[in-house]
């Protein structure tokens, strides 16, 4: 695979493409979970290629396993502030605020097993918030949710982005998600970035790969 992609600060970029194209790998390279064989990852001019995941200015939301099943909601979010979980009063307040931001006030003492799928991802987003990283990487985190709930979550992410000033990269397999939430979209196929443009333009592009993927002719 060989990726060449530049993203503006503050953008909301969707990444679409057929399965196996390398969408998640691209996100892993940025998040630091896989190492490139060559090349560099730059953020704001700083080379982060050799940095450990925790040191990078990014935070990733996975499709699954974002929470520890045996820890309460508060502790799961608190991990974003202190991975050793020694939280002082100020930090607890921050956790409470983050939970309020995602609409989960009062859920502090619940266990993940008692939450719905959407609520679980909200907890994970709350943790992303308390980590204060400028880049949010979403690896199909809402794929398992229904359309209504998915829009709600996308609204939430957009609202947070606007308020905090995040750059969001979102892998999705649903072009509607991209159309709904992303200003720009990158289309990836066979380990290459084929096209990066405004979302509408990508979705209506006549590039054969894109057409084959979307399975329809441009409207």
């Amino acid at each position: 695979m060989r990726f060449d992609l530049a993203v503006e600060l503050g953008a909301f970029l969707a990444i679409i493409g057929p399965s196996g194209a390398g969408k998640s790998t691209l996100l892993s390279l940025i998040g630091g979970f896989e190492r490139p064989l060559g090349g560099r990852v730059l953020v704001d001019g700083v080379d982060i290629t050799a940095m450990a995941p925790a040191a990078r200015p990014c935070t990733t939301l996975f499709q699954d396993h974002n929470l520890f099943a045996h820890l309460t909601v508060e502790k799961n979010v608190g991990l974003g502030l202190d991975p050793g979980l020694r939280l002082d009063a100020a930090q607890r307040a921050e956790v409470a605020q983050a939970l309020a931001d995602v609409g989960l006030t009062g859920f502090e003492q619940r266990l993940p097993g008692q939450l719905s799928g959407g609520e679980r991802q909200r907890v994970a987003i709350a943790r992303c918030l308390v980590r204060h990283r400028p880049i949010l990487l979403l690896d199909e985190p809402f794929a398992a949710l229904g359309p209504g709930l998915r829009r709600e979550m996308l609204d939430l992410v957009r609202a947070l982005r606007d308020r905090v000033g995040l750059t969001v990269l979102m892998v999705t397999h649903d072009p509607e998600d991209a159309r709904y939430a992303a200003d720009r979209t990158a289309f990836i196929a066979s380990g290459r970035v084929v096209l990066v443009d405004a979302t509408e333009r990508v979705l209506e592009s006549s590039v054969p790969d894109v057409r084959a993927y979307l399975g329809s002719s441009p409207e």
């Binding site: 995941p53 925790a54 990733t60 996975f62 396993h65 974003g80 991975p83 050793g84």
Partner: peptide, 19 residues
């Protein structure tokens, strides 16, 4: 994903063990 999460959160060794 759990290990990635731990790496992302910068969990020290003992915290990984405990959590």
């Amino acid at each position: 994903e759990t290990w990635r999460l731990a790496a992302q959160l910068g969990m020290p060794g003992w915290a990984r063990f405990r959590l």
